[in-house]
Design a protein around this nucleic acid. Sequence first.
DNA 1: GTCATGTATCAA
DNA 2: TGATACATGACC
Length: 689
Amino acid sequence: MTTADGAGAVDGSQLPLAGLARRPGRRTAPAGELAATDPVAEVAVDVSLPHLDRPFEYAVPASMAEDARPGVRVRVRFAGQDVEGYLLARKPAAEHPGRLAPLRRVVSPEPVLTPGLLDLCRAVADRWAGVLPDVLRLAVPRRHAGTEKREQPEPAAAPPRPGAGRWAAYRAGPAFLEHVHGGQAPRAAWTALPGEDWPAALATAVATALSAGRGALVVVPDHRDVDRVDAALTALLGSGQHVRLTADQGAAARYRAWLALQRGAVRAVVGTRAAAYAPVHDLGLVVVWDDGDDLHAEPHAPYPHVRELLALRSEREGAALLAGGFTRTAEVQAWLDAGFARPVEADRAAVRAAAPRVLLPGEGPEPERDPAARSARLPSLAWRTARTALEHGPVLVQVPRRGYRLALQCARCRSRARCSACAGPLAQSSGHAVPACRWCGRPAGTWTCPTCGGTALRSAVLGQRRTAEELGRAFPGVPVRTSGGGEVLAGVPDRPALVVATPGAEPVADSGYAAALLLDGWALFDRADLRAGEEALRRWANAAALVRPAPQGGTVVLLAPAGLPPVEALVRWDPAWHAARELAERVELAFPPAVALATLTGPADAVDALLGHARLPASADVLGPVPVAQDPRPPAGQDAPTSAVRALVRVPVADRAALARALREAAAVRSARKEPGAVRVQIDPLDVL
DNA sequence: GTCATGTATCAA
DNA sequence: TGATACATGACC
């Protein structure tokens, strides 16, 4: 029987059940129906309005006293409707001066939102100026009731510690593993050697953490990469030590894997971006592979990025952090410069021994007139390289994806045209005769190229997909396979074939490609994007890394002009050099990661209102708002705003938290006042044009 | 977001 | 005067 103490602590006397209390015919529920201890529950309700992003207190009926534990999903009455929520905590007394409504239902006794996961989600919401319910939707998978009842396997015994394996080839590689094994939290930027079997290397790192009783988490860009790491982990550890988490696995499989981690039956996971939240026990190692891939950027509010999320998480949970790839982003370079992370890289001799030879048109023997090459619209060098390589194995042909944004460049030297006021990219909007800056909106009536002094602008060419049929005609009798779009090949056998793939969909060849042709190098520069150079190098290097080393004849033909930094970086296979250059450029232009930046996108008056409410740090620099092309994905149920604008706010990195807080508070004011128009706030978005 | 309440507005 | 519309604030 519940004592009066419990009830008195709630409300001073009885605890009426709201809703029932108003109806004269029904009596207030007696105090005896409340939980004996801690009759008050704090609940995060699933309402994504900024001004409601805080716990609300509910009374715990005695019938739910056992199940209503912190972390469980509950259903409550909120503002007259039934909503889901998470029970955050139980406590003896309420702070809310009014009456408490009771919990309506404990949806599931499974405590899915553990204190650690709640802390992480709260930190993510704060870091990206968002609200907790939005983050919880990303972090906690949908419930699958049948799966909860099923027995989990017994926790597997920790595996033996593996040798350093492939890590011995890298300076500071074995030391990193040693620290992981020793319970420390080193942070490393790993630049993988071309040709590296990186899934195997990551499996070794995961096994090292497991062998020390620590958990491990690996986030890769896509499903195919999950398959590769999954296979490498199984090869090293068997099948019981890890699970996989991907968006495309069914609700049951996903929830089962998630629960296995949550219940501590399994301590290692590999997955795509949502796996960054996986409830791994005793987390000792977090890994992000190829952090430059934009699949690591969450497309749902509040738009967190896996790299930054894992950095945040590793610090909060004392886990080691490993950011690996064949190239290095400016963001990771900034980590190195700041001393936040240390490099794990091979020495130059090892790089030279592992990298393929990279050729550019204009080098090597004079091109001859070759009708077969012309019919495929292939430069002679590419055609001859492929023809020779096809005698030794498969040849990869990387073709660009469609649909790059239109940018402007110097008609003479082809360097990207930038605004003379703020260095933003110039672009031609449809319907406007005068090109304008995409950042500050300033029209560029007259323009002079700072590189060559030219004054004429040219429209960039859109990427164009070459067809496999065209290549097939140029190489009669050679099988042509394609990978990309809907159909992605995992691997190809070690036989002569042309393998046409879009970036990110390149199949792995059993013993490496004999050659790769990287076509349409220009298209990658024609993106109106600050990250174009970095992205070009990343795509080229990821394809070139699948080619055999130069000593075994591996050759890459890159159709891009010599002299541009990403081209030079590929030829010399020096991604660190390129990353340092990129970062220096970002510092110069005052763009991320050199500064923290927020974009506010929405109807003009809504953006103005948000900026008006925001108590921005004194350091804040506001650019725009400027009109932007219609939002490609307007919020559900809303029409695309007719006059969408975008404003940029930049602050020093040290003020990022203050910027996020100011924007969130301003959004809270707007939502409380029901000001019309939705404004999308993004912190450090990738697509700052 | 929903709901309840308060105030302005207008036809009868 | 009563019906209705719209603004406002709370939401536990």
